[in-house]
Design a protein around this nucleic acid. Structure first.
Lengths: 143, 143
DNA sequence: ATAATATTGATATTCATTATCATCTAATAG
DNA sequence: CTATTAGATGATAATGAATATCAATATTAT
């Protein structure tokens, strides 16, 4: 999804829910979209703060939640680390290989696995909505 | 893994690391092994407390961590909920279908997916150690 | 412009987990 | 068996991310 499209999804979601457009919201979304990905709420808060020193951290938390709800952001929790957020679209769906030594994230995707997951869910009378696959191990450098 | 085997793994791990056997450790392990599974640290603490009112919650936390280290327990984090622990063996490896409405856990397993995951890791020069697959959706009752 | 109401920022609060530390106890040597 | 010593415990404080509260403010519809 292009940056523009993500913004539209967000603003559409806002108006559909009767929520308002504020410069804080747009600035948080902009900063998030131009971030590398895998950002924490705190990192995003500091990034936005560089442009707008008067932003509050609670506002960043609140809006990250909104962004997750409408599908622009995706929460990922790894171990006991703090929650990270990544751009859900514009990346395509992917899973993660996570190095247990250096913490590196590798994004991967495999259609066969995706399809098998759907079958697995169906076989259990279960309607799949989303999933999370994380494979922990050692990356090229660390092995 | 039988209950006995789990105990051996734990005590072997303790002696290998120069750690000591205490009634607290054994009681926590016993209670954990006879629990249904998917238990939280707090639930386990309360269960042990029924037998030994003088147990401390920090001790339960400490030893759940030890049990995870030696492979008797497995940490699972779901969403923003608190960490749950389950018996790692004696159940066999499995993944989870998680109902987003009622919170029900369904344990599932599929060898094909497991093998594909290994291939996926190898294709990325990655040595897999363990993985976590969670499929969120609606269970039979809630759909 | 006004009214209605959502939003914000500062702050307090929550709550699981971790750290601290004096005391206790298991393991070991003698 | 006793002393030694180093790990373990329990009470408590501390941490830290996420949430709740609330008065002040900003946005939107009329």
């Amino acid at each position: 999804m292009s940056s523009e499209k993500a913004k539209n999804i967000f603003t559409d979601y806002l108006s559909k829910k009767g929520l308002r457009n504020t410069w804080q919201r747009l600035s948080i979304l902009d900063t998030f979209l131009s971030s590398g990905g895998h950002i924490t709420a705190d990192e995003l808060y500091n990034a936005v703060k560089r442009k707008h020193s008067d932003i509050g951290s609670a506002t960043v938390h609140r809006n990250l939640k909104l962004m997750s709800e409408c599908g622009v952001a995706d929460e990922i929790k790894i171990g006991n680390k703090k929650t990270r957020y990544e751009q859900k679209y514009g990346h395509g769906h992917h899973d993660h290989l996570i190095c247990t030594k250096c913490g590196k994230f590798i994004e991967v995707h495999n259609d066969k696995i995706e399809r098998l997951q759907e079958k697995l869910a169906e076989a259990n009378d279960f309607i799949p909505q989303r999933h999370k696959l994380e494979i922990y191990g050692l990356c090229k450098k660390c092995k």
